[in-house]
Design a protein around this nucleic acid. Structure first.
Length: 263
DNA sequence: ATGGTCGTTAGACGA
């Protein structure tokens, strides 16, 4: 089974590109982040025509997460228990969606950006990650036999070599001690980065800012991750970051991450 | 030259 995750930065703009990616990599399950549309705007036909079922949650032009699967899409869950809400939203932002696909519990996650260290959004980010850790620890305790994958845009660069130049990030989000501790807490809860062993750095990134020629200059960040429970991690045989998808006109600012599992 | 580019949208805001 092949599982992928991709912050697409608008599914309506990139539906055809995503469809081509699914076929090129023979992907069974794809988690998407930043679909940037409401449920009624999601271009489901493009993917159903290729044999994929679709689960999506999106309330507005912001956020939005989806899971596409051609190996079953069951027990769809919107949000995780305890997921904090932003500002005065009556409903939580569309940043977490789960489904069971081919026996794997897949969570498509779009961790809040944080904006700046002084912004309330940064506090929200840390609380969000803390609540995710607590829930994820519970899933593992309740049912360790079911493989669980926490995948998506974590908006954290856990190691110094996950950014091209640490001096640029001296007082920025994504690399702060608290964010890294929040990420590590999920790892400590039993979820392993299954991609890094197959894609050792430095210089391996999943995101490059659109501005300042970041991509051609190879100035990126590794912020998209597949964290697997022990039952998931033990089945991973290969992983890659498809840097080709960041090239050319009409690319997302993120590259997809692909993981291969034994059946 | 204190920006640079995208996406949502119709003036900004978010990333």
């Amino acid at each position: 089974m092949r599982l992928a995750t991709w912050n697409v930065n608008s599914i309506r703009t990139r539906a055809d590109r995503v469809a081509a990616f699914l076929q090129r990599h023979d992907v069974d399950v794809l988690a998407l982040q930043e679909t940037k549309c409401r449920d009624d705007q999601f271009p489901e036909m493009v993917f159903s025509a290729l044999g994929y079922e679709v689960a999506h949650v999106g309330h507005s032009q912001w956020n939005g997460v989806a899971i596409l699967s051609r190996v079953g899409l069951d027990d769809v869950t919107l949000g995780f228990p305890g997921q904090p809400c932003w500002a005065d939203d009556t409903s939580c932002e569309a940043r977490a969606l789960a489904a069971t696909c081919g026996g794997v519990r897949v969570w498509s996650l779009y961790v809040p950006n944080g904006r700046t260290l002084a912004d309330p959004h940064y506090t929200y980010k840390l609380e969000w990650l803390g609540a995710l850790r607590d829930s994820a620890a519970g899933w593992l305790a309740e049912d360790p036999a079911t493989p669980v994958a926490l995948v998506g845009d974590w908006n954290i660069a856990p190691q110094d070599d996950d950014v091209w130049d640490m001096s640029v990030f001296s007082s920025a989000t994504h690399v702060s001690a608290l964010e890294r501790a929040a990420f590590q807490a999920v790892v400590d809860a039993g979820y392993t980065d299954v991609v890094r062993p197959h894609t050792p750095g430095p210089g391996v990134y999943t995101y490059w800012d659109y501005t300042q020629l970041r991509f051609p200059r190879r100035e990126g960040m590794r912020i998209d991750f597949v964290l697997g429970s022990p039952a998931f991690a033990s089945r991973v045989t290969n992983a890659l970051v498809d840097r080709e998808e960041r090239k050319g006109k009409g690319a997302s600012d993120h590259a997809p991450v692909v993981v291969e599992l034994t059946d």
